[in-house]
């Protein structure tokens, strides 16, 4: 009887622990990685080993890509500017307040499960979402303290597409992203062949930003894994062969391919995130979501 009482108490405690509310504004450690998010690097055209099975394919053009994910600072600067210019607006999307922008629509084939995306205004970022790293007072968007140099999250594919397009850039295609992430030699991770806990920000990687009892895994500042030591936490320098940071872990990155396959209305995401196990940090792993999806583990970077 005593055993069963202890067992039930244990289960009850577990159940109550699971009901603890999460304060998403819990302060985050402030670190400067020293990596400038305004930097770009050139990825040359040419052959490289692609996908899980190392197929040799050719990328027929050079392109430049951002060294880091777009940060909250960068995105909010864009939002305030674009709002002033009337390029984007405050409105509603599916009954919820949102920052919205125009998208010219996708081709539609009527294939099973395909979402019809016509020309119109779509959600860029939600307003009043507690997981967002900015506030909005009705006029101005402001970055929440401590999050400015973290990747922009809670941004839809439309929000990413609009940001890149605003500056005359675009989202990377899957093949561009892959070559930028792994170079030519078929490595599974941007920095090489093996993954250590301090190579990247992934689920339960014990980085200084996570608190697995409460808020869970959180984003790290862009370029955080660059070999620096932050208050005793030693990172491994983990750039891709072309010098890009965070190409594995931290946030999934939206890719630019539209109708990747005929009837596939989702948009691809790559790179794994703070919320996924290490298996999803392998470069060829694909995730996808409808373009209106937004979440605390999805961000992006641009190419030109």
């Amino acid at each position: 009887m005593k055993y069963w009482r202890h067992l039930l108490t244990f289960i009850l405690i577990g159940f109550l622990t699971a009901c603890i509310p999460v304060n998403l504004d819990t302060p985050v450690p402030a670190y400067d990685s020293g990596i400038d998010p305004n930097n770009w690097v050139m990825v040359p055209s040419g052959e490289f080993l692609s996908s899980q099975f190392n197929e040799l394919i050719n990328l027929d053009h050079d392109f430049e890509i951002m060294v880091t994910d777009v940060t909250v600072n960068q995105y909010i600067a864009f939002v305030n500017q674009a709002l002033l210019e009337g390029k984007i607006k405050i409105g509603e999307f599916q009954g919820k307040p949102a920052l919205i922008g125009f998208y010219p629509g996708d081709p539609f084939h009527g294939i099973k499960h395909e979402i019809q995306i016509d020309a119109g205004d779509y959600l860029l970022v939600p307003l009043n979402d507690p997981a967002s790293r900015f506030t909005f007072d009705g006029k101005q968007f402001v970055v929440k303290e401590g999050w400015g140099n973290h990747p922009m999250t809670n941004v839809s594919w439309f929000g990413s597409w609009t940001y890149c397009g605003y500056y005359g850039w675009r989202l990377p295609s899957e093949k561009e992203w892959e070559k930028a992430a792994r170079g030519v030699d078929g490595r599974p991770y941007p920095w090489g062949w093996e993954l250590a806990l301090n190579n990247a920000n992934f689920y339960a990687s014990r980085d200084p930003f996570e608190d697995m009892n409460l808020v869970g895994s959180r984003t790290s500042p862009v370029g955080f894994y660059n070999g620096k030591t932050y208050d005793g936490y030693i990172t491994l320098n983990s750039p891709s062969p072309y010098g890009l940071y965070d190409m594995a872990g931290n946030v999934w990155q939206w890719l630019g391919d539209v109708q990747f396959q005929e009837g596939f209305s989702d948009r691809l995401m790559a790179g794994g995130s703070k919320d996924t196990y290490d298996k999803d940090l392998r470069i060829w792993v694909r995730n996808s979501a409808p373009p209106m999806y937004y979440g605390p583990a999805a961000g992006f970077r641009c190419v030109r």
Binding site: I11, G14, L24, L214
Partner: peptide
């Protein structure tokens, strides 16, 4: 539950599953 607020629930469920 939302992605951002799920951790305590995930922990509780993982305890139940592993237990």
């Amino acid at each position: 539950i939302s992605e951002a607020e799920q951790q305590p629930l995930v922990n509780g469920l993982m305890y139940a599953i592993d237990f």
